[in-house]
Design a binder for these strands. Structure first.
Length: 874
DNA sequence: TTAGGGTTAG
């Protein structure tokens, strides 16, 4: 009370002689007015006041006014009038000024953060040759530090003779405040070297600095030192140690200290809760909280905050709600930051309604509250709700910051809303946020996920500063958007600029996989091994996928077996791999193993297993999985699942059942589903059903040439040349062009692409002659070319010529000519392999003793000794 | 003359 109350009864500024007898000088050198006899409340202060000896003579009193600058300056200081205090200080003679006057003015300068005035005081101190004693020195140091001139503070500090432990601690903590923890530690070492008697404050600050520096070993040394000095039982020091060990990711050491701490206060308990929560051990943190309640330890707002974060991280809504009630009781919930934490707890626990209730009840909201809600909707898959909130934010003129922008971009990316994303981009431009790295990375990600790699690239090109995330986003974006060549180019450019990381590997491998670029993939695999990225599960899964898609199933299996803790993706990739290669039974065994491991399949793993069943003709098993998915796992079948089932029925010849199945589907079938049945009609030569089905397909996808060609082929195989002609005319009328078939083969890391019918390759002549030679031998062996597939109503010779030009044949011949003997020929085709080419590949494998692995748009065909792994299911 | 250790979301 004595420190603040005197201000309440100050006299007016201009000293009134008549009232002087009422003035007293307080202990800290300030004038205070003597209270009237009625004032009893402040009377205790006066017991500590010394009356100033003031003569009643008018002459002496004038003399006082002229000479005692100290008193006047002190009075101005007390009034906060720095201007007048400075003016008087400048007017005063050295001999008139007392040390206390300088310190008071300096304190005011610090309070008002007036660096200029404080510097002036400092220069007066210097020019008056005033000795910097402990007090004046401390004031100068703290003045400079408070005004942000830590360098000058340090200069004064270093120039001082005797310094007490407070001032040393002050400097240590000032460096820590600016983030210069190393300098803090250097000072601490100086303290120890100079024999300064450190105290508990020193250790609190030093341990915080060491935690920030990640100096676990140094911290342990300090721990030993403080024990030696006898601070091992000091509650505040042990609390600091607990926090230090938690920050150093050593919860067990923190726990040991807490267990031994007899004098626990609320900070000790809170340190344990928040320490566990921030170490990803929220459940243990919550247990500490329960123990705290059990023992009747009083909780405070910091306890509640940490517990809420713990509930959010572990998804324990019930406890979160109970703590919410406790917060209401304690009136904590009225503060905005607290409400935001609460809101986030509900949102992360999946209770969006609860989050919304907090949000709506909040008296004041800031951008964090809004962003929290947006993130909640996005997390819940309700991107539309997130975008609606953005519009509401705009209406309420809430200014978006970087985090808000990135959250909204994330919502747009999740929902694939390119238009909304572009609006956000406009906002970014209008608000000068284009140079922010985080914003740019999120923008690129949004464009990539919305399928616009052109826009993503334009953001990328305009970035002055790029980090590894920028590069990875672009590479991953190209890979996922079926632009593997661009991904590889970007990867090559990245290598010129910076070292890739494990995430880069997981982004580039799918590009190699989609190109079946085995050699490039192997190069990257080598890089992964050299850099120790194989333990990254994303990388390991991508490697399995790479070898699956490059047709090296054995290696994929080996790598899969080597993954120590397989996740759902690892299993799903392997199941799909077996399916793609026609190993349906192996896929089923793998699926069962996954369930034995306690991993629950999701809708994607069911697509993989159903796909595997359909590509191996496993009808009964397929139905069983379809049933299990719906009934045991409560997964509502999606179009992809129905497509697999239709495919399975069609491939196994149950065409009318497939038709019925489509008609009774609870969701509208798309062209792919009808297309599967159309393929079945082709396999089983059901022209009548094919016509019925084809019309449904044409309605849904009138522009897709593939389906017109498919029907034309069905007609051609039935030798209905009139209908083939009709189809060709229909295609011609619509101005549609058949998608050109192309195939490629990677030789020495280079992808060699062949387009059907194109003979511009430098080795064309050699290829042609090899194919003719092979064809002759095949005929001798009783092989008749499947000329039906030529789709041309011409004479047999012409048809055979047309078939010779199919891209997969050209590539296979090129492979035979170029690759060393016994090397497997690996071919990839953009469309489904044609029947004639399939026959020829079978023959080639027998005739040349070569293994041929052909990946078409649908599956793998392994040709060996005249047999194909697809067993006719393709 | 003065201080520290626990908490706050997107």
């Amino acid at each position: 009370m004595a420190k603040t109350a005197p201000n309440l009864c100050f006299p007016p500024l201009n000293l009134n002689q008549n009232r002087r007898e009422n003035l007293f000088l307080s202990k800290n050198g300030c004038f205070i007015q003597k209270p009237s006899s009625k004032t009893t409340l402040l009377s205790p202060i006066f017991s500590s006041c010394t009356p100033i000896r003031i003569s009643a003579s008018p002459a002496r009193s004038i003399d006082y006014q002229l000479t005692d600058y100290n008193v006047k300056i002190l009075r101005f200081c007390e009034l906060g009038n720095l201007h007048n205090a400075m003016e008087l200080l400048c007017l005063s003679e050295k001999s008139e000024l007392e040390p206390r006057t300088y310190t008071s003015v300096l304190q005011l300068c610090a309070g008002l953060k007036s660096l200029t005035d404080g510097k002036k005081v400092h220069s007066i101190v210097n020019s008056n040759n005033v000795v910097l004693d402990e007090l004046l020195g401390s004031k100068l140091v703290s003045f400079y530090a408070t005004c942000g001139d830590l360098k000058e503070a340090r200069r004064v500090f270093d120039g001082m003779g005797k310094k007490n432990v407070y001032l040393w601690n002050f400097m240590v903590s000032e460096y820590a405040k600016t983030g210069d923890f190393k300098e803090s530690i250097r000072l601490f070492k100086m303290m120890v070297e100079r024999g300064i008697e450190v105290n508990s404050y020193t250790f609190s600050c030093v341990l915080k600095c060491l935690a920030a520096l990640g100096g676990l070993k140094n911290g342990e040394c300090v721990h030993g030192y403080l024990l030696k000095l006898g601070f091992g039982c000091c509650n505040s020091v042990v609390n600091s140690l607990i926090s230090f060990y938690f920050k150093g990711r050593r919860p067990e050491s923190a726990c040991e200290l807490f267990d031994k701490l007899t004098d626990r206060d609320v900070i000790s308990w809170n340190s344990m809760i928040s320490g566990y929560v921030s170490n990803g051990l929220a459940q243990r943190g919550l247990e500490i909280f329960k123990e705290m309640l059990r023992l009747g330890v009083e909780v405070d707002s910091a306890t509640i905050v940490s517990v809420l974060v713990g509930c959010a991280n572990s998804g324990i809504l019930s406890l979160g709600k109970a703590v919410h009630a406790l917060a209401i009781k304690s009136c904590f919930e009225r503060r905005i930051n607290f409400s935001n934490t609460l809101l986030d707890m509900y949102s992360k626990c999946g209770d969006l309604d609860g989050a919304l209730r907090v949000f709506e009840k909040m008296g004041e909201r800031n951008v964090v509250s809004w962003t929290s809600m947006i993130a909640g909707y996005t997390r819940d898959g309700q991107s539309d709700g997130a975008i609606r909130l953005l519009q509401q934010m705009e209406k309420e003129s809430v200014k978006l910051d970087v985090v808000a922008i990135t959250s909204i971009l994330h919502a747009c990316a999740r929902s694939g809303s390119l238009d909304n994303g572009k609006d956000v981009h406009d906002y970014i431009k209008a608000n000068d946020m284009e140079s922010n790295l985080f914003v740019c990375n999120a923008l690129m990600d949004m464009y990539a996920k919305c399928g616009s790699m052109e826009d993503a690239n334009s953001v990328f090109s305009s970035m002055a500063v790029k980090d590894i995330i920028s590069w990875n986003t672009m590479i991953g974006g190209y890979s996922k958007n079926c632009l593997p060549n661009e991904a590889l180019k970007m990867f090559a450019a990245m290598l010129e600029e910076l070292k890739p990381d494990s995430r880069t590997m997981a982004c580039i491998l799918p590009a190699c996989a989609s190109l079946s670029a085995l050699e490039r993939g192997k190069e990257i695999h080598g890089h992964i091994l050299r850099n120790g990225y194989s333990s990254d599960r994303h990388v390991a899964n991508a490697l399995v996928d790479l070898y699956v898609k490059c047709g090296v199933l054995g290696l994929a299996q080996l790598l899969f077996d080597m993954i120590p803790s397989k996740d759902l993706v690892s299993w799903t990739v392997m199941i799909a791999g077996y399916g793609m290669h026609g190993f349906g039974n192996e896929a089923i065994t793998t699926f069962n193993e996954m369930r034995d491991e306690g991993i629950e399949p999701d809708e994607v793993s069911f697509i993989s297993i159903l796909y595997a069943c359909s590509h191996s003709g496993l009808l009964e098993e397929g139905w069983r999985f379809f049933y299990i998915m719906k009934n045991d796992f409560n997964i509502e079948p999606k179009l992809e699942h129905y497509a697999c089932m239709v495919d399975l029925l069609s491939r196994t010849g149950y065409l009318s059942k497939a038709y019925e199945f489509i008609e009774t589907m609870p969701i509208a079938p798309d062209a792919t589903i009808w297309g599967s049945l159309l393929c079945g009609c082709r396999i089983y030569h059901d022209v009548e059903l094919a016509e019925k089905v084809a019309e449904r397909v044409f309605e849904l996808e009138p522009e897709n040439t593939g389906y017109y060609v498919l029907l034309a082929n069905i007609y051609a195989e039935a030798e209905k040349w009139e209908e083939v002609k009709r189809m060709r005319e229909r295609i011609g009328r619509k101005g549609l062009r058949k998608n050109p078939g192309c195939s490629w083969i990677e030789i020495k890391g280079r992808v060699n692409l062949f387009v059907s019918g194109n003979n511009s390759h430098p080795q064309s002549k050699k290829i042609e002659s090899l194919l003719k030679k092979l064809r002759r031998k095949m005929k001798e062996d009783g092989y008749f070319p499947k000329t039906k597939y030529a789709l041309i109503d011409a004479d047999e010779m012409q048809k055979e010529m047309a078939l010779c030009g199919h891209s997969e044949k050209l590539v296979m011949a090129f492979g035979l000519l170029t690759l060393p003997p016994r090397k497997t020929i690996r071919v990839t085709k953009n469309l489904r392999v044609c029947g004639d080419c399939h026959e020829m590949a079978r023959f080639m494998s027998k005739e040349t003793g070569r293994e041929i692995v052909l990946r078409d748009s649908n599956r793998f065909h392994h040709f060996k000794d005249g047999y194909c792994s697809c067993r006719g299911f393709w």
